[in-house]
Design a protein around this nucleic acid. Structure first.
Lengths: 225, 225
DNA sequence: AGAACAACTATACCTACGTTTGTAATGCGC
DNA sequence: GCGCATTACAAACGTAGGTATAGTTGTTCT
């Protein structure tokens, strides 16, 4: 129904950002085909759609990617689609292309986090540069996200009490204070604390504190200056 | 030479973002005057210039502010001015206004961090909303910046040796390891470490670690997962 | 019923951390 | 030369952190 070309993935040349997928949403068939060819010619994988709904209905693979999106589309417009993706917590970097755009459109797109907003006709290289920038942005976002996810899954291996102790340790309380706070004996806190260090794979308290920062933990009580 | 109207700062009504300054750079005198009136009418202080150079030559007060900037200007253009300000590490949020803009201009401006890019004619409320958003952004940036500056000045009260100890503490080393690293006796490290806690006003190790994060410290040796 | 685990505590012991008091050499500014 | 900050260490002491061993409940899964 639409060209779903998981291109020549081994093209002997090692282009920058190989293995990244470029999604295309563009209703004009010839434009869609020429975009597909352009990206494939530099070794990028391409998945193209004719409308926003088609893309929403397909399940997106969880790899580094970006989206080249026509502003004017049948059904959901490009800008509306951008809003929808944001609402659905899909953070794919978007490059808009348009033949008949105006400034308010471009400003709205950029405010919404778009990587670029190109007007037809544009030079191939402009678009490729934007795609490189976009995939790079996605790669970084994914790396950061992965760090958080990894830490979260470690954190979830902690028993509720261990989690509570970890939070209070992160706020800088002493074991005896934590014990008082939770109605425990100090020795119990020490033991849970030991469990926390092991399960979180923290090599030092400094390490653990940084993990709590990344996780956005920290029990109510204020501290920091 | 240009209207430098530090408006009616006590207008009985307590508008949002009072005490903020709106800078205006606009060569058209009547436009400049009407912008000035608009902002003053809602209780904002205004400082207006006819060109980018005039603004660069005046010393900018260190308070929450934003810049309403015409894209088309004699001498340095609005976009060039934006670049100059960034190069000079001046982070004032910019709202562009223009009569004859195009999409590439607006995209460049937004990529450069502009808050908004309005085309004439625009409704007063649009501009005011943008100014509110811009001053709010500046307020937050300044608060974050101030935190860092405060910590930096505390850090600079530390002797070189104390700073070195602090960095190694932040990496999670034990006192004896720090001592080995610096060629000191452990007792010496303990004493310096005590100085560090006092001088940095850290109430706990967790507190100190977070300070080092904010300061971007951390000696070479990797740790974090 | 029995295994497995979470939660909780105690005794004992060891290490790490932190402070106080005191000593001493070096170097800088006035 | 005097004062002062910095760097450095020691002895002594007290507190905080951490582990091992061992034991009691209580729940849940099988």
């Amino acid at each position: 129904m639409n060209e779903r070309s998981n291109s020549q993935r081994e093209g002997s040349r090692a282009e920058a950002s190989a293995n990244a997928i470029v999604f295309i949403v563009e209703d004009d068939v010839s434009m869609r085909r020429s975009l597909t060819n352009l990206f494939q010619s530099v070794g990028l994988d391409v998945v193209a759609f004719g409308s926003a709904r088609e893309m929403l209905q397909s399940k997106l693979p969880d790899v580094v990617s970006c989206l080249v999106l026509d502003v004017r589309l049948p059904g959901l417009s490009g800008l509306e689609f951008q809003t929808e993706l944001a609402k659905s917590n899909i953070h794919i970097p978007i490059i808009f292309i348009t033949g008949h755009g105006d400034i308010p459109m471009s400003v709205r797109a950029m405010k919404g986090g778009a990587v670029d907003f190109l007007t037809k006709p544009f030079r191939d290289q402009e678009l490729l540069d934007a795609v490189i920038a976009a995939t790079e942005r996605d790669r970084k976002r994914r790396a950061a996200e992965q760090t958080v996810v990894n830490l979260k899954s470690l954190f979830e291996t902690l028993s509720p009490r261990e989690q509570a102790v970890m939070k209070l340790v992160a706020t800088g309380l002493m074991n005896k204070q934590i014990a008082a706070e939770l109605g425990l004996a100090e020795i119990t806190v020490k033991i849970y604390r030991g469990h926390v260090m092991k399960k979180m794979r923290a090599r030092s308290l400094a390490d653990l504190i940084r993990m709590t920062e990344t996780l956005g933990l920290r029990a109510n009580r204020p501290e920091q200056t």
